[in-house]
Amino acid sequence: MLSVADLTMRFGGLTAVDGLSFQARAGEITAVIGPNGAGKTTVFNCVTGFYRPTSGSIALIHAIGARFALERMSGHRIASRAKIARTFQNVRLFAGMTVLENLLVAQHNTLMAATGFGVLAVLGLGGYRAAEKAGMDKARRWLDRIGLLERADDPAGSLPYGDQRRLEIARAMCIDPVMLCLDEPAAGLNPRESEALNRLLLSIRADGCSLLLIEHDMAVVMRVSDHIVVLDHGQKIADGTPAEVRADPAVIAAYLGEDEEA
């Protein structure tokens, strides 16, 4: 379970997030929505350790009880220890490397541990071969799942945009996260791709991984989310199930209303 309490983030004089508190329950899909500039991505970057919050706390509690104070951890530790994976608003793949390599890089820490600090594996010793085989199998499973098995050996940058988005999600899942954070996963997708994305998200939830997503596309949000947090000007204006949020007058005024005008 992720619990954010009194989170505040200031950039110089600008307060992007102001005393925000919410919870994302384990095994659910939680969506953070709000108009442009509401502070969604900032919240995200605080949770995933790319920004250090000005004040407040962010705690992640694993099912087995381990507790992580994320506001004090650096980005790569949040991924490797607290097991929070993320994607980016503008896809960040290793474009020059192949699809398969992208998935192998994501398993870096697991594979690295098997190489005996690199030295043994250079000499071809140690148990690296088995670890590599396991890594390849895992990559193959994910490629199969996102339908990119055929393109495993192509450079990631040569894939169509929709495939790149799904690959980025698969790559994030290769670190075996307990929570996956998605920054506008449906942006720029056509309806068919968007539908495939929904199914992917639901199947990830079915595997027991919690999801936190930022989204503009209300169709995606309303269909897949269990729980929605609405932000405006860095503050929370609503929090509840899709049905509750949809009926909330403050939300309609701040966000949905704006959408209808446009």
Binding site: R77, S80, A85, T87
Partner: peptide
Amino acid sequence: IACRSLGI
């Protein structure tokens, strides 16, 4: 940045 997000 992507590397960091993958725990490297």
